[in-house]
């Protein structure tokens, strides 16, 4: 069952990721990216990261991608023009070379990761909101506060950038 779920959602993630890169229209890419994030949330659940799976859906697929779609619609971004001035070699060699690169990378990862018992659902239960929250507010309190300052600065920067006219 685990392996079936992994293969199903991993293929959804890879398919949608290829779609993100291949599609010429930004709105199609954005919706495919939402697909990647949803599939990754299921994989997080399989890995026992309940809180991160929920945050993935809420923060990434919910907030960040809505921001993207909002900007795409605001700018009325159309499809990309056909790539002019790009050599044909890139087009024909790119995909095979990319596949070979991924194959080599997979081989190296396969070789270098020790074969353990593997990942099965329910074996690790340290990813509940309680565990994450306890760690976040004890050991990682200072980085947590630093991120709050970072988000504040980002909000101010976004407001300043979006309203200023640069001559």
């Amino acid at each position: 069952m685990d392996i079936f779920l992994f293969i199903l959602f991993a293929s959804i993630a890879v398919f949608c990721a290829v779609n993100v890169v291949v599609q010429t229209h930004p709105i199609t890419s954005a919706l495919s990216l939402v697909g990647v994030m949803g599939a990754l949330a299921v994989l997080y659940l399989l890995l026992g990261a309940e809180f991160i799976a929920a945050a993935q859906i809420v923060v990434y697929a919910g907030a960040i991608m809505v921001l993207f779609v909002f900007v795409i619609m605001l700018l009325n971004a159309g499809g990309e023009a056909k790539s002019a001035g790009r050599s044909q070699m890139v087009r024909w060699l790119g995909i095979p070379l990319f596949t070979i690169f991924i194959g080599l990378l997979s081989y190296i990862v396969q070789r270098s990761v020790p074969a353990g018992p593997g990942v099965s659902f329910g074996q690790f239960t340290g990813g509940t909101p309680r565990d994450v929250g306890r760690l976040l507010f004890t050991q990682y309190l200072l980085p947590f506060e630093a991120t709050s300052v970072l988000v504040l600065i980002a909000i101010l920067g976004a407001v300043v950038l979006a309203r200023k006219e640069i001559e």
Binding site: M1, D2, I3, F6, A10, A13, V14, A17, V18, V20, V21, P26, V36, L43, L46, L47, A77, E80, S83, V90, G94, F98, F101, I102, L105, S106, V109, Q110, V113, A115, G116, P117, G118, V119, S120, F121
Partner: peptide
């Protein structure tokens, strides 16, 4: 339940990262 090897997750991560790099380099929008 059949366990999934950890390396499969890492390979999936590598594939997604590679696709991200490809998009970053080749897209112009």
């Amino acid at each position: 339940t059949t366990a999934v090897p950890l390396s499969w997750y890492l390979i999936l991560s590598a594939i997604l990262f590679g696709l991200g790099v490809a998009g970053f380099v080749f897209r112009r929008n």
